Computed example of a mutant assay.
Amino acid sequence: MIGLLFQDFVRWFDARMTAVKIYYLHCFYSRILKGYEKGEINPEKINVLDAIHFINVAWNIDVKPTTIANYFRRCKI
């Protein structure tokens, strides 16, 4: 039974990460467009801090703490 719960969790988490990837790409492409508007050279190059910031924004937009807590409560983990 625990294996099935874990499989459900992995599927749920993967679905959440698909949404996070979409928000990440939105942040990334917005940054590129702003760079072109400012006339930056190679605006598509980002550093690790920028990538972390994009992921943080994407995660906070889509995955709320109550969502995670509700899932674990429902699975009784």
Rank of each mutant, 00 (worst) to 15 (best):
G35C: 01
F6Q: 12
D50Y: 12
M1G: 12
C27W: 03
P65Y: 03
F13C: 12
K21N: 13
V57P: 02
I55K: 06
M17P: 00
Y24L: 02
I68M: 02
A58T: 05
R74S: 09
I68S: 01
W59D: 04
D50E: 15
T18A: 10
S30A: 12
Y36K: 11
Q7I: 09
F13S: 15
A69W: 08
R74M: 07
I46N: 01
F9M: 13
A15S: 15
L49F: 06
R73G: 01
G39K: 05
D14Y: 11
I61V: 07
A15V: 06
P65S: 03
N42R: 04
I52V: 10
K34V: 06
Y23T: 09
V57L: 13
G35R: 00
N42F: 10
R31M: 09
N70P: 02
G35D: 01
K45H: 09
H26N: 12
S30H: 08
Y24K: 01
I22R: 14
F13H: 11
I52T: 09
Y29I: 10
I41G: 07
A15H: 09
I55S: 08
D8M: 10
K34G: 04
V20N: 02
D50K: 05
I68H: 01
F13W: 11
K76T: 03
Y71F: 12
N70C: 05
N70M: 02
K45D: 15
F28Q: 01
I68L: 06
N70K: 06
R31N: 10
I68E: 01
Y71V: 00
P43Q: 12
C75G: 04
A19Q: 13
V20T: 08
I77K: 05
Q7K: 05
P43E: 14
K64C: 05
V63C: 04
Y29N: 08
A58G: 07
I2W: 07
G35E: 01
F6P: 00
K64L: 10
Y29W: 14
R16V: 07
I22Y: 11
V20S: 02
F72E: 00
D62F: 04
V63E: 00
L4W: 09
V10S: 12
G3Q: 12
D62V: 07
V63L: 09
H53C: 06
A15D: 14
